[in-house]
Design a protein around this nucleic acid. Structure first.
Lengths: 242, 242
DNA sequence: GCAAAAGTGTTCATCTTACACCCATGA
DNA sequence: TCATGGGTGTAAGATGAACACTTTTGC
């Protein structure tokens, strides 16, 4: 920290949320339609300014989670992605945004009549591949959040945050497939996840499905770090140099 | 973002730097002795307030890097770690700090007489294991930065940022050993790093050492993402659950 | 020649992958 | 009994750890 005789210019600080969930086996992010300028009418991440003098960044994220998305903040994964501070990222002036990644089990379309009435689940693929235009730098923030989720699926028990408790191994597999955008062999996946000590724990009961043999039910284990990791199928080699 | 009729309270924004390097085969971080309250006389990370209205967070980090550490910002690894915003992290008031991780090849002790005269390289181990007392929440920030470096050594070419160009494979191995705190088999390491396409490229020449066969010299390749990864030796299993 | 560090070959255990096969259910 | 998804066995190939061994230097 430098000397404090000179007063540094204050900035505004916002918290934005990348809320991911699985709907119909596809990865979705929650976006809200902006009611005010700038970017009025455009889709944006839910979020808001840090407004309580005593609240931490994480507490602000929890508050926005319930205010803007109507989500019970308790019992849901929340972690910081990054801070975004380009001088021209917001036309209103110098606004630094701290983005958080939240992950929730499949949720219904936000109910009309609430604060979250103008919120919608949008497939991540539409934003990242079709480059749907969003407000501010929110496409970049979503890309960073999704990449974070992709990486953490390998080494942490993050995938269970996408599932209701209890869940089947097939449901867990759909999480990996949707987030990574790959197909996995169900037989090998079955053994692989069971081979990680502490990852998932059998509840003892089963669940009947539309057809086929009933699936055993599991809940998340106490272990948050996975070893051995659940490795992502290797992307194709792109040989360069020697 | 919420409505803008009500003005949110401004906060002060600081940028702090976790500058890592290898000295004598041990991981060190650069710390400065604080000349002003609070924490006068204590060791702290180099950093300062965001003071130029038009500068991005990353530009501010580069500026602090040259002002406080006397480092030519160009050509050195710099990435954001996280934002830290606990309400009571700074006794002066509400100050949010965005921390950056910088990695540099072995550098001399900062020269007296410069802005960086009160800066010192401190072994990371002393801070993390002996829990040396630092100003603010800087121990946590260093822990996060070191953990980031540890993880990224596996999947990215970050290790080359610790080395001068050109470097030997043994030097690269010392980076992995110091950051991970492990011993690696030189023969297997030798082949492993050469087996990752694009990671390191032979320059064609060699360097004589004090004794022993001269080592081939390499420079960083164009590939930043490593596959296959350089895997960290498995930490011991801690069996829980089933 | 000897010590030391660089670099190579080889073996054995383990992990991954692919896929044949069996199990339990609804229709 | 058939179709379907859940779950098990297993063999071939790839990977990784351990370590014997060769190469090239300074002394």
């Amino acid at each position: 920290m430098s000397e404090n005789r000179w007063a540094p210019p204050p900035v505004l600080l916002a918290v934005d949320l990348v809320i991911l969930t699985l709907r119909d086996s596809r990865l979705h992010v929650l976006l809200v339609e902006r009611g005010v300028e700038p970017y009025r009418g455009a889709l944006a991440l839910p979020g808001g300014f840090l407004n309580n003098p005593g609240e931490s960044l994480e507490q602000a994220a929890h508050r926005e989670l319930s205010e803007e998305a109507g989500l019970d903040a308790a019992r849901l994964h929340l972690e910081q992605i990054s801070a975004y501070g380009d001088p021209d990222r917001d036309p209103r002036g110098r606004i630094i945004s701290v983005a958080y990644l939240a992950i929730a089990p499949g949720l219904p379309e936000p109910a009309p009549g609430t604060d979250a009435a103008d919120a919608h689940w949008v497939p991540v693929e539409e934003i990242l591949h079709r480059r749907l235009t969003l407000a501010f730098d929110h496409v970049d923030i979503i890309a960073d959040g999704v990449e974070r989720a992709r990486v953490k699926l390998e080494h942490t028990a993050l995938a269970t945050a996408f599932c209701e408790t209890p869940f089947t191994i097939a449901e867990l597999q759909r999480v990996y497939e949707a987030v990574w955008g790959v197909r996995l062999d169900p037989r090998n996946f079955y053994r692989k996840v069971q081979g990680v000590p502490g990852f998932i724990v059998a509840t003892g009961s089963s669940r009947r499905t539309a057809r086929g043999r009933p699936a055993r039910l599991f809940r998340a284990g106490s272990r948050t770090l996975l070893n051995p990791p659940i490795v992502r199928p290797g992307r194709p080699e792109t040989g360069e140099d020697s």
